[in-house]
Write a protein that binds this DNA or RNA. Structure first.
Lengths: 370, 370
DNA sequence: GCCCAGAGTGAATCTCAGC
DNA sequence: TGCTGAGATTCACTCTGGG
């Protein structure tokens, strides 16, 4: 990726700009495209004040006098064009986020699937403070939907910081429904006239979670509908890099000014919690070589019912009604349980000073000594 | 509508059966179509037990060895055919519900919009007890999505019982995200072998809310994927009529038997709350006055461990090691738990026909009957 | 009868490095 | 590219059986 595009806001048509980026050069895409709202007329609150709705030209697709179907056709064409350009710019193991509402998210999800993206999750952003339904004709539209997708079905090694998400959720798995407030108050960018600078500014908390979940420090995050730069602001704070594409030079100027004021957090504060998978592998035999375990030691499972004997070559031997077993700590553990698989590190224990400890404890000693 | 189709389960292909129904004859459609899950191999839990996945033939579209795109093409063709048939059977001001997950809901939403349906809401069913993600590779898939749509954009006079929904939601507008548990325990239909009779049985609470929101007593509700008849059971209980279409005669037989055991609620209890009337909160004593609960009835918590007795003045009495307690349903519930507060409406249960139900259910009856 | 431990289960697109 | 084997991975709830 040419350095002169990184951490910059580029003004112009996002499809053309994405086509000018190197292929397979970005790690993650976050996109907040126009919603194609098709609002008919003004919406009034019960007190007859007018709701400041999205009525910008960039949210219009087709002539309002034409059929609804014609508008969808134009919107689909636009959607497929920018998605294809984003897919081209994405690394093979990168992922893409798109946010939308029921007006457009079904068009986008279908287009994603048709282009070969592989859906990983749909995420519901539950708004803690949504706008009520003033007419009383529908349920309060209290959420928006994000789709998180891998570039293709075969991409298995996409980034997902599972452990960080679990920590963020008080120790249990992060669910597909996120409760977050709208972007209001001091976070909401205002113009000199005191009015909101952008009609659909997203809360930084939403971007925080997407970026923390699916990227690593130093990754390049592309946002083709940059607006006032929420993606760039959060990316910079979290030690990620960004490429912002925005058609409107006024929005781009606001975004540049906003991001320049951001102070990146310290590197050690933005690194995802390391997963166990990322830790170096330790062959079981190393414990024997290191003298932490003697050949001939008898291991047992936690209950003390199953036993196996450590051999000098790093295998275990055991026997039960099914016969003799010899092999890795995992294979023998599985065989004795009659199970299809077994994690020998946590299954097997040794007795130390009267208490039973998993051999994983010894592995940790080796790792910390490396 | 010919009487001989009403309150019946018809066995056969749902598209052909819908085409044989009179045009514009049903008030509401509820559809739970196949999701086209495209699952891979087996999935094991960390304890090595196997997940009982949906692997039925009815959820297969195309040969798994062929491309993903080919499967979507078949699924789209099927979707558009049954949606067109459902639209034909629907009255001009009727509405349609479809439920799905991220595997299929985007295809369905797109097809709905393309056929001229007008989307009213997308509703998120947040599962209070979803299955976790066992491999730590994605967010917990903790919700499903329903789409609620009018037959066309011009239909303005569809049924939406706004005030009933508001009451069900403790006096504020019902939002587009609903927190409901899975269908488990006594509600889940089992075969003689003790295994679940249908792999994807939906909870009655979900149907309750859809039917209460978008239909009136006496309305005809069509379900083209009837399965074991949850739609019919709830429709009958709420004084609505139904037409159930089901391909599998075994499922149809289970559904017929199930529905025959349902006792419809009194007409005055299932009528939507008339709009434009500000209703007071329901004091607990009103349930006693209304005869829904007799003084002397013993309430229990969900586990059946804690008990309290209903008094004629609308208070409860109970005792435990800490002494005797008397007061409101909320106070006694809190005292018995040693908790600072308690929502008595959801904490206390009564046993009805062998199953335990929160007294909130009775409050809903009072409210819907007002 | 009560309490507690343990087993069971739900629409799920669920690993990955190294040879 | 495919195959092998290490080894990482679960939440809320219900039901059953033993003490």
């Amino acid at each position: 990726m040419p350095v002169d595009n990184i951490d910059r806001v580029l003004v112009g048509d996002c499809i053309e700009l994405m086509q000018s980026l190197p292929e397979a050069s970005v790690d993650m895409v976050f996109a907040d495209p126009p919603y194609n709202l098709q609002l008919g007329g003004d919406l009034l609150r019960p007190d007859n004040s007018k709701v400041d709705a999205v009525d910008d030209d960039w949210d219009k697709f087709g002539d309002p006098s034409e059929s609804v179907g014609a508008s969808f056709a134009l919107y689909d064409k636009f959607t497929r064009a920018w998605l294809a350009a984003a897919r081209r710019a994405l690394k093979p193991e990168g992922t893409l986020w798109v946010i939308g509402s029921y007006h457009n998210i079904f068009r986008i999800g279908t287009a994603l699937q048709d282009q070969g993206f592989w859906l990983l999750n749909d995420i519901v952003w539950r708004k803690s403070n949504p706008m009520p339904n003033f007419r009383g004709k529908r349920f309060t539209n209290a959420h928006e939907t994000l789709i998180w997708a891998a570039r293709d079905k075969a991409a298995k090694r996409y980034t997902f910081n599972y452990d960080s998400m679990k920590e963020l959720n008080e120790g249990t798995q992060m669910r597909s429904d996120w409760l977050l407030p709208l972007c209001t108050g001091g976070e909401r960018l205002k113009g000199e006239d005191g009015k909101k600078a952008h009609p659909t500014q997203k809360p930084e908390s939403l971007l925080f979670r997407c970026i923390m979940a699916a990227s690593n420090p130093g990754d390049v995050i592309l946002d083709p509908f940059f607006g006032t730069g929420t993606t760039g602001a959060v990316a910079r704070r979290l030690g990620r890099r960004f490429i912002g594409l925005e058609r409107d030079p006024d929005y781009a100027a606001i975004a540049r000014k906003r991001i320049a004021q951001i102070e990146p957090l310290a590197a050690e504060d933005v690194t995802p919690k390391p997963s166990k998978r990322a830790e170096p592998r330790i062959p079981f035999g190393v414990l024997i070589e290191a003298g932490l375990l003697q050949p001939g030691t008898v291991l047992s499972d936690q209950s003390g019912r199953l036993h196996a004997r450590v051999r000098a070559d790093g295998t275990l031997s055991a026997s039960n009604a099914m016969g003799d077993h010899r092999g890795s700590i995992h294979q023998v553990g599985a065989a004795l349980q009659g199970a299809p698989a077994c994690n020998g590190w946590t299954f097997w224990h040794i007795d130390v000073a009267g208490s039973r400890r998993p051999i994983d404890h010894l592995r940790q000693q080796v790792r910390s000594g490396l």
